[in-house]
């Protein structure tokens, strides 16, 4: 619904105007930004923390921090990209609190020998979504993406679900463009691989686990 797009014609993104008004103390303008992006922030926070309560806290803290730091927002990047950066940091902080002592980051290198992705070569059912009910499907998708390293999950969600560009994703996560690209490829292939056992042609057998 709220896909983010640049017009490329030098037109000002509507967020920029809202941010300007909010900077001048127009709280309603800020409220619009909250309503526009809270679902997406909640989604990213969940993908990182894997905890609903933490994700709710992240939504609050990220918007409040954004409000406090609004003066620092220069408009060289999109407001949403800037907001995601704050939300990712807040999410990582929550994670660290839960796993005390353990360092958590999204740029841990998860190297595998490249090109060696195991491939499930069975074709999928023509309409995998017809095989499962809505909530069952959501569970499968959740379980599947949770099996990926956090750095892969977040890149996949920002690029493929939120529709950010490679550059914006790199900017939001503080990663290099090649790092975003290599993670995206591996995330897509790993998800595909893991979903294959649910969606392959001969129905649900071979599923489970």
């Amino acid at each position: 619904m709220s896909t983010i797009q640049t017009s490329g014609t030098g037109e000002v993104h509507p967020d920029v105007l809202l941010v300007e008004r909010a900077k001048q103390g127009d709280v309603q303008a800020f409220e619009k930004l909250v309503r526009q992006y809270d679902r997406q922030v909640f989604r990213i926070a969940n993908h990182i923390t894997q905890n609903r309560e933490d994700a709710e806290d992240v939504v609050q803290d990220a918007f409040l921090k954004a409000y406090e730091k609004l003066e620092q927002f220069q408009g060289n990047s999109k407001f949403y990209t800037w907001l995601v950066r704050i939300a990712v940091n807040e999410s990582l902080m929550r994670l660290r609190k839960r796993r005390t002592g353990k360092m958590v980051s999204i740029d841990e290198d998860v190297e595998t020998e490249d090109g060696s992705v195991p491939r499930d070569l069975a074709d999928w059912s023509p309409d995998p979504e017809a095989l499962y009910g809505q909530s069952e499907m959501a569970e499968i998708l959740k379980k599947t993406i949770q099996g990926l390293p956090p750095g892969f999950r977040v890149v996949f969600v920002l690029r493929d679900v939120d529709g950010l560009s490679t550059e914006e994703t790199a900017d939001a996560l503080g990663l290099s463009i090649p790092a975003v690209k290599s993670r995206l490829l591996r995330a897509r292939l790993q998800l595909r691989e893991r979903l294959a056992k649910y969606f392959r042609k001969n129905g649900k057998n071979g599923g489970g686990k």
Binding site: R43, M137, L141, I145, L191, L195, A196
Partner: peptide, 16 residues
């Protein structure tokens, strides 16, 4: 094809 489908499915289902 199945990678495309993977993306499409994640895009069309809100899991959180």
């Amino acid at each position: 094809n199945t990678t495309r489908k993977t993306i499409e499915i994640y895009r069309s289902h809100e899991i959180y």
